[in-house]
Design a protein around this nucleic acid. Sequence first.
DNA 1: AACTATTTTTAGATTTGTCTAAATTTAATT
DNA 2: AATTAAATTTAGACAAATCTAAAAATAGTT
Lengths: 215, 215
Amino acid sequence: MTRSEENYLKTIFHLGSGDDASINTNAIAEQMETKPSSVTDMAKKLAEKGLVNYKKYQGISLTDAGIKTALSIVRKHRLWETFLVEKLDFAWDEVHEVAEQLEHIKSEKLIDKLDQLLKFPKYDPHGDPIPGKNGEFQEHNKDLLSELPVGAHGVCVGVKDSSSAFLQYLDKHEISIGKPIQILGKEAFDGSLHLKIGEREHTVSHQIACNIYLK
Amino acid sequence: MTRSEENYLKTIFHLGSGDDASINTNAIAEQMETKPSSVTDMAKKLAEKGLVNYKKYQGISLTDAGIKTALSIVRKHRLWETFLVEKLDFAWDEVHEVAEQLEHIKSEKLIDKLDQLLKFPKYDPHGDPIPGKNGEFQEHNKDLLSELPVGAHGVCVGVKDSSSAFLQYLDKHEISIGKPIQILGKEAFDGSLHLKIGEREHTVSHQIACNIYLK
DNA sequence: AACTATTTTTAGATTTGTCTAAATTTAATT
DNA sequence: AATTAAATTTAGACAAATCTAAAAATAGTT
């Protein structure tokens, strides 16, 4: 399994082919910042190996074997992210790039020992679930902040957008995983929300609210 | 800097071009399990980048920039080995392969934080010195067990051969870094040594003695 | 249903790192 | 010094992963 193959599987997985739906060639290309023709080439190769279902012009989806492989890469990525934050004091907006490299290290023992060192974490620093050795994981049953009514309250358990820019915005406004949040009011015009975050009050735009998960 | 380039620099460094002497094309090829023609190709590329001195048929040596780069790779390799042993309970004969992968991860912050987590170790699990951020390191002033006279005693501070087979041999005979060792006698015929290792006595062949460092 | 626009694929080229086989240079030996 | 042996380089080929440009298939629209 080459690094490139792994990256394709991971991308297809993230684009939603944990389900059964087929993914567009173009969507994969855009996500990976590559060209559609490259995706077609790789689709053929992965189909040869039994990792994706691929028929010309019909889109791409993961086979069971493909899902299994994708989950193991996601597991590695999220364990490494957790390691970087928990053991090396990285900020949550600094871990993604490095984890993109670390996730391709090949050593089952390494990842099992890392899991153990971290005490078998269930969620990564962004609140995303970490698959276990056999691919099993529990998603939080969480809600997007933007979809909750005025008066609702809960605890931040994750973010949808893990970009550095967004995470730094959250840091600035003291929003982090575990913080209690209550919706004090909603602006009808633009959907912005007036929130109580911990002990403070802040107003956030609809766009921000669309990327915060509450439980 | 590609992974392949890094591996060439590291190999040239280990073959002794920390000094000024030029290294044979063939020696590099053999060490890297590749062909001499591939080495020539890479020599040209690395010379272009100012990392090696290369003149046709005259051998290859590292420039100052090449040495600096090689040292940073060695630093990463040895810090990762130390991490694997100290934090993930790997045995000292299991770390090399994984470290060969980890040494190519690109993140200065990662390696500095790792250094900090490990409390700035000076030596790796095989007793080899770990270069600092600026490439400085102190070699133990150590002696090969095979070159010491009968009656000599000291502490094992390193091994010359880091192969899994050799390290497992040492484990079996309870020889490890930090163990006190005394030479009780030497067999004139084959050079084998009768040793006191900790509280026990063992006889080891000359070949073994050539790969153990004492201080 | 015909036409247009979009998506996807093909064909051929490129880059990196490697290889084989042949040619060349250097070293060793008579 | 001539010859043989060994080391090194060149030339040309190949596989992996990518790209561009053109062709083909699908989807959307009048």
